[in-house]
Simulated assay, not measured.
Amino acid sequence: MIAALGLGLVIGILLGLLGGGGSILAVPALVYGVGVPVAAAIPTSLVVVGISSAAALLPRLAGGQIRWGIAGIFGVTGAGAAFAGAVVNRLLDPRLVLAGFALLMIAAGFRMLAGATGPAGTAPCPGAG
């Protein structure tokens, strides 16, 4: 329980600070730090990230920092894809899921360190994540 509390605090702080990456932190924290099986860690991380993200969103609402159109498009398409991904996840070996997750984290890290830019060479929005 103490490990879950501590890791939850760290994940919440980093979500508020960086604006994203919660699942990249939550899944390994739940699996290796708290001992939750992969099959339960993934949906649990979605709840953790959803609640933490909603809390981190509140201070940004008043500042007009949200691009509602883009958020809506990402949200709707992401919701459908997440449902499909959850169906496929149940068919895969948990070790394969974790290996794919690790490869995704590495690819994202390299892309960020390479100074990737957005469309038409524009810099990504600060806090986008």
Results as ranks from 00 to 15, higher is better:
residue 26 A to E: 08
residue 100 G to R: 11
residue 104 L to Y: 08
residue 77 T to L: 14
residue 76 V to D: 05
residue 116 A to R: 07
residue 103 L to H: 10
residue 73 I to P: 01
residue 27 V to M: 07
residue 118 G to S: 15
residue 12 G to C: 00
residue 24 I to K: 01
residue 103 L to K: 07
residue 24 I to E: 05
residue 5 L to P: 03
residue 23 S to A: 14
residue 18 L to D: 00
residue 122 T to M: 07
residue 123 A to V: 12
residue 40 A to K: 06
residue 12 G to W: 08
residue 12 G to F: 09
residue 50 G to W: 01
residue 69 G to W: 05
residue 61 L to F: 13
residue 128 A to P: 04
residue 48 V to I: 15
residue 111 R to E: 12
residue 43 P to W: 00
residue 52 S to V: 07
residue 35 G to I: 05
residue 10 V to T: 03
residue 23 S to F: 02
residue 71 A to H: 06
residue 123 A to W: 09
residue 58 L to F: 13
residue 81 A to L: 14
residue 105 M to T: 09
residue 43 P to I: 00
residue 117 T to H: 14
residue 15 L to R: 14
residue 22 G to D: 11
residue 38 V to A: 01
residue 53 S to L: 03
residue 80 G to I: 00
residue 38 V to L: 04
residue 106 I to G: 13
residue 41 A to F: 14
residue 85 G to Q: 10
residue 14 L to R: 08
residue 84 A to L: 14
residue 57 L to E: 01
residue 62 A to L: 07
residue 34 V to R: 00
residue 64 G to Y: 04
residue 36 V to N: 02
residue 41 A to R: 08
residue 101 F to W: 13
residue 37 P to Q: 03
residue 73 I to F: 05
residue 65 Q to S: 06
residue 56 A to K: 11
residue 72 G to S: 15
residue 92 L to G: 08
residue 98 L to H: 05
residue 77 T to R: 05
residue 110 F to A: 11
residue 116 A to C: 07
residue 71 A to G: 03
residue 17 L to G: 11
residue 65 Q to C: 00
residue 58 L to A: 13
residue 15 L to A: 00
residue 60 R to M: 11
residue 34 V to D: 04
residue 32 Y to G: 12
residue 128 A to G: 15
residue 29 A to R: 06
residue 108 A to H: 05
residue 114 A to I: 01
residue 126 P to Y: 15
residue 30 L to S: 05
residue 112 M to C: 08
residue 8 G to Y: 02
residue 64 G to T: 02
residue 5 L to H: 04
residue 34 V to L: 04
residue 68 W to K: 06
residue 106 I to A: 10
residue 7 L to G: 04
residue 111 R to D: 12
residue 29 A to E: 06
residue 61 L to M: 10
residue 23 S to T: 06
residue 78 G to Q: 02
residue 100 G to W: 13
residue 62 A to R: 15
residue 11 I to S: 03
residue 24 I to L: 11
residue 25 L to H: 06
residue 30 L to N: 03
residue 129 G to P: 02
residue 30 L to P: 03
